[in-house]
């Protein structure tokens, strides 16, 4: 799932301080799960902003809402009848939601309230770690289900680099060596022969370069 963290309050204030009427819009999707941009965080941020601007002698109208998802038009459309009542929207959705909201309401300033960080998992409540960099061509079948692109700090496809110590990465001794994890996993699966087969240079055409990626599912289109 997409993970995000709330932006520092000072940064948010800097973005919205010139607008008298602000809608803080959360998203009930991924950012709710990682407790960065759901209705609860909307309420906390809106209260903090109201308090700040009141203390500054510039009270503002700061309202709260949260949409089922900000990455689907039908939910964004629910703002249609009230968005004109605001001078700006502070979206606590991930970067996708912020942009899709701005796409739909082209003349309304939309600002991000969170930093979208990575695709990751919940290790324990409040601890999230990255697992996927969405490169567009999954190689987990070759690496024992452990992604070297996301979990090796050098993104090596034929590791280990030789710099790890006691299973920890040389870049950060608190971080497990991705290739140590791959080795142990393949060993446990009895697939160590895979470790002996070099991975050829990766095809990065499905990754970030070359512009916006797109999926068209003809079987789903209506």
């Amino acid at each position: 799932m997409i993970r995000a963290v709330g932006k520092p309050l000072e940064e948010v204030i800097g973005m919205v301080q010139d607008y008298p009427r602000i809608l803080v819009a959360g998203c009930d999707g991924c950012v709710t799960v990682c407790e960065a941009g759901g209705l609860k965080e909307v309420k906390v941020l809106a209260a903090a902003l109201r308090l700040y601007f009141t203390q500054q002698g510039e009270p503002k109208q700061i309202d709260e809402t949260s949409l089922t998802r900000q990455c689907d038009k039908e939910y964004l459309a629910q703002l249609g009848d009230r968005i004109d009542g605001y001078d700006a929207v502070l979206s606590l959705a991930c970067g996708c939601g912020v942009q899709f909201l701005a796409d739909m309401y082209t003349t309304k300033p939309v600002y991000p309230g969170v930093d979208t960080t990575f695709l990751g998992v919940t290790e324990e409540r409040g601890v999230y770690t990255e697992r996927c960099q969405a490169c567009g061509r999954c190689i987990l079948a070759d690496t024992g289900g452990v992604c070297p692109i996301a979990r090796c700090s050098k993104r090596m496809l034929n590791g280990p680099c030789g710099g790890s110590d006691k299973g920890k990465c040389e870049v950060n001794p608190e971080m497990p060596c991705g290739w140590q994890l791959i080795y142990e996993r393949l060993k446990a699966l009895g697939q160590l022969d895979r470790f002996e087969q070099p991975i050829t240079p990766k095809d990065w055409t499905t990754s970030r370069d070359g512009g916006v990626r797109k999926i068209v599912r003809e079987d789903l289109r209506v």
Binding site: P201, K202, D203, W204, T205, S207, D209, G210
Partner: peptide, 13 residues
């Protein structure tokens, strides 16, 4: 020019 215009179009820019 973009990587995709060249002869190593699977490379990472």
């Amino acid at each position: 020019d973009d990587i995709t215009f060249g002869d190593h179009h699977t490379a990472k820019a």
